[in-house]
Protein backbone atom coordinates (compact mmCIF):
# COMPACT_ATOMS: atom_id res chain seq x y z
CA UNK A 1 0.00 0.00 0.00
CA UNK A 2 1.26 3.44 -0.90
CA UNK A 3 0.03 6.44 1.00
CA UNK A 4 0.16 9.42 -1.31
CA UNK A 5 0.96 12.59 0.52
CA UNK A 6 -0.81 15.42 -1.21
CA UNK A 7 0.50 18.85 -0.42
CA UNK A 8 -2.15 21.42 0.22
CA UNK A 9 -2.54 23.93 -2.59
CA UNK A 10 -1.39 27.50 -2.23
CA UNK A 11 -3.81 30.36 -2.71
CA UNK A 12 -2.60 31.04 -6.23
CA UNK A 13 -3.14 27.40 -7.16
CA UNK A 14 -6.60 27.36 -5.65
CA UNK A 15 -7.54 30.50 -7.54
CA UNK A 16 -6.69 28.47 -10.62
CA UNK A 17 -6.29 31.48 -12.87
CA UNK A 18 -2.49 31.91 -12.48
CA UNK A 19 -2.05 28.24 -13.31
CA UNK A 20 -4.32 28.64 -16.33
CA UNK A 21 -2.20 31.53 -17.54
CA UNK A 22 0.94 29.45 -17.01
CA UNK A 23 -0.53 26.66 -19.12
CA UNK A 24 -1.58 29.09 -21.80
CA UNK A 25 1.90 30.58 -21.97
CA UNK A 26 3.39 27.12 -22.45
CA UNK A 27 1.11 26.24 -25.34
CA UNK A 28 1.66 29.66 -26.87
CA UNK A 29 5.43 29.16 -26.84
CA UNK A 30 5.00 25.80 -28.54
CA UNK A 31 3.27 27.45 -31.50
CA UNK A 32 6.57 28.87 -32.69
CA UNK A 33 8.55 25.64 -32.47
CA UNK A 34 9.28 24.03 -35.82
CA UNK A 35 6.98 21.22 -36.80
CA UNK A 36 8.34 17.71 -36.84
CA UNK A 37 5.82 16.47 -39.37
CA UNK A 38 7.21 14.57 -42.36
CA UNK A 39 5.36 15.57 -45.54
CA UNK A 40 5.20 11.97 -46.66
CA UNK A 41 4.74 11.75 -50.42
CA UNK A 42 7.13 14.64 -51.00
CA UNK A 43 9.56 13.61 -48.26
CA UNK A 44 9.70 9.81 -48.45
CA UNK A 45 10.88 7.73 -45.53
CA UNK A 46 14.64 7.15 -45.49
CA UNK A 47 15.56 3.61 -46.47
CA UNK A 48 18.79 1.67 -46.02
CA UNK A 49 20.01 -1.58 -47.52
CA UNK A 50 18.54 -3.31 -44.49
CA UNK A 51 15.04 -2.18 -45.49
CA UNK A 52 13.14 -5.23 -46.61
CA UNK A 53 10.76 -3.89 -49.22
CA UNK A 54 9.09 -5.62 -52.13
CA UNK A 55 10.97 -8.38 -54.00
CA UNK A 56 12.44 -7.45 -57.36
CA UNK A 57 14.24 -9.44 -60.08
CA UNK A 58 17.82 -8.60 -61.01
CA UNK A 59 18.69 -7.78 -64.61
CA UNK A 60 22.39 -8.31 -65.09
CA UNK A 61 24.64 -5.76 -66.76
CA UNK A 62 24.55 -7.66 -70.06
CA UNK A 63 20.77 -7.17 -70.20
CA UNK A 64 19.74 -10.70 -69.36
CA UNK A 65 17.68 -11.69 -66.38
CA UNK A 66 19.65 -13.47 -63.68
CA UNK A 67 16.85 -15.91 -62.90
CA UNK A 68 17.16 -19.48 -64.18
CA UNK A 69 13.60 -20.43 -63.15
CA UNK A 70 14.75 -23.13 -60.76
CA UNK A 71 11.58 -22.69 -58.69
CA UNK A 72 13.29 -22.58 -55.30
CA UNK A 73 11.77 -19.23 -54.44
CA UNK A 74 8.37 -20.48 -55.51
CA UNK A 75 8.81 -23.40 -53.15
CA UNK A 76 10.14 -21.24 -50.34
CA UNK A 77 7.36 -18.70 -50.55
CA UNK A 78 5.11 -19.23 -47.49
CA UNK A 79 2.31 -17.20 -49.01
CA UNK A 80 2.28 -18.90 -52.41
CA UNK A 81 2.71 -15.52 -54.03
CA UNK A 82 5.17 -16.57 -56.71
CA UNK A 83 4.30 -18.33 -59.95
CA UNK A 84 7.07 -19.33 -62.38
CA UNK A 85 6.91 -20.95 -65.81
CA UNK A 86 10.32 -21.74 -67.23
CA UNK A 87 11.54 -22.06 -70.81
CA UNK A 88 14.77 -23.00 -72.58
CA UNK A 89 17.18 -20.46 -73.90
CA UNK A 90 20.26 -20.51 -76.12
CA UNK A 91 22.33 -18.82 -73.51
CA UNK A 92 24.95 -20.76 -71.56
CA UNK A 93 22.69 -21.18 -68.54
CA UNK A 94 20.07 -22.87 -70.79
CA UNK A 95 16.98 -21.82 -68.78
CA UNK A 96 15.13 -18.61 -68.08
CA UNK A 97 11.62 -17.75 -66.83
CA UNK A 98 8.89 -17.41 -69.39
CA UNK A 99 6.54 -16.09 -66.77
CA UNK A 100 7.46 -14.75 -63.33
CA UNK A 101 4.49 -13.38 -61.39
CA UNK A 102 4.42 -12.17 -57.82
CA UNK A 103 0.99 -11.47 -56.38
CA UNK A 104 1.84 -8.44 -54.30
CA UNK A 105 -1.44 -8.78 -52.40
CA UNK A 106 -0.24 -12.16 -51.11
CA UNK A 107 3.41 -11.32 -50.62
CA UNK A 108 4.25 -10.84 -46.96
CA UNK A 109 7.70 -9.34 -47.61
CA UNK A 110 9.34 -12.12 -45.57
CA UNK A 111 12.44 -12.33 -47.76
CA UNK A 112 12.52 -16.14 -47.98
CA UNK A 113 12.72 -15.96 -51.79
CA UNK A 114 15.83 -13.82 -51.50
CA UNK A 115 17.35 -16.32 -49.10
CA UNK A 116 16.41 -19.32 -51.24
CA UNK A 117 17.72 -17.99 -54.53
CA UNK A 118 20.96 -19.75 -55.57
CA UNK A 119 21.67 -17.34 -58.42
CA UNK A 120 21.34 -13.95 -56.65
CA UNK A 121 18.44 -13.19 -58.95
CA UNK A 122 15.75 -11.95 -56.55
CA UNK A 123 16.27 -9.29 -53.88
CA UNK A 124 14.15 -7.32 -51.47
CA UNK A 125 14.31 -3.77 -52.80
CA UNK A 126 13.66 -0.59 -50.88
CA UNK A 127 10.39 0.03 -52.69
CA UNK A 128 7.57 0.15 -50.15
CA UNK A 129 4.61 1.83 -51.82
CA UNK A 130 1.92 -0.43 -53.14
CA UNK A 131 -1.32 0.91 -54.54
CA UNK A 132 -3.57 0.22 -57.48
CA UNK A 133 -7.17 0.52 -58.50
CA UNK A 134 -7.69 -3.22 -59.09
CA UNK A 135 -6.56 -6.52 -57.66
CA UNK A 136 -5.31 -7.76 -61.00
CA UNK A 137 -3.09 -4.70 -61.27
CA UNK A 138 -1.28 -5.80 -58.13
CA UNK A 139 -0.19 -9.12 -59.60
CA UNK A 140 3.22 -7.98 -60.86
CA UNK A 141 4.60 -9.71 -63.93
CA UNK A 142 8.23 -9.98 -64.96
CA UNK A 143 8.33 -6.61 -66.72
CA UNK A 144 7.15 -4.87 -63.56
CA UNK A 145 9.57 -6.79 -61.38
CA UNK A 146 12.75 -6.29 -63.38
CA UNK A 147 15.32 -3.91 -61.95
CA UNK A 148 18.84 -3.28 -63.21
CA UNK A 149 21.54 -4.67 -60.95
CA UNK A 150 22.81 -1.17 -60.26
CA UNK A 151 19.50 -0.24 -58.61
CA UNK A 152 19.77 -3.17 -56.22
CA UNK A 153 23.52 -2.88 -55.67
CA UNK A 154 23.37 -1.86 -52.01
CA UNK A 155 21.07 -4.68 -51.04
CA UNK A 156 23.08 -7.25 -53.03
CA UNK A 157 26.31 -6.24 -51.32
CA UNK A 158 24.64 -6.29 -47.94
CA UNK A 159 23.22 -9.76 -48.47
CA UNK A 160 26.56 -11.00 -49.68
CA UNK A 161 28.27 -9.62 -46.60
CA UNK A 162 25.70 -11.22 -44.29
CA UNK A 163 25.92 -14.57 -46.08
CA UNK A 164 29.72 -14.55 -45.97
CA UNK A 165 29.76 -13.90 -42.30
CA UNK A 166 27.24 -16.64 -41.71
CA UNK A 167 29.18 -19.16 -43.76
CA UNK A 168 32.54 -18.41 -42.10
CA UNK A 169 31.12 -18.59 -38.61
CA UNK A 170 29.31 -21.87 -39.23
CA UNK A 171 32.24 -23.58 -40.97
CA UNK A 172 34.65 -22.93 -38.15
Amino acid sequence: MVIVQRKSLSLAERLYLPEVLRGLSITFKKIFQPAITRQYPEEPLPTTEVTRGQPRLVVKDDGNIACVSCGLCEAACPAYAITIDGQETDRFIEREPERFDIDMLRCILCGFCEEACPKDAIFMSNELELADYSRSGLVYDMEKLKRPASALKGRMDYIKRINDRWQTSSST
Binding site: T27, K30, I31, F32, Q33, P34, A35, I36, T37, Q39
Partner: peptide, 10 residues
Amino acid sequence: KVSAWMQYRI
Protein backbone atom coordinates in the same frame (compact mmCIF):
# COMPACT_ATOMS: atom_id res chain seq x y z
CA LYS B 1 -4.11 24.84 -37.65
CA VAL B 2 -3.49 26.24 -34.17
CA SER B 3 -3.92 22.87 -32.52
CA ALA B 4 -1.41 21.47 -35.00
CA TRP B 5 1.13 24.19 -34.29
CA MET B 6 0.79 23.66 -30.57
CA GLN B 7 1.58 19.97 -31.08
CA TYR B 8 4.57 20.48 -33.44
CA ARG B 9 2.46 19.55 -36.43
CA ILE B 10 1.61 21.42 -39.60
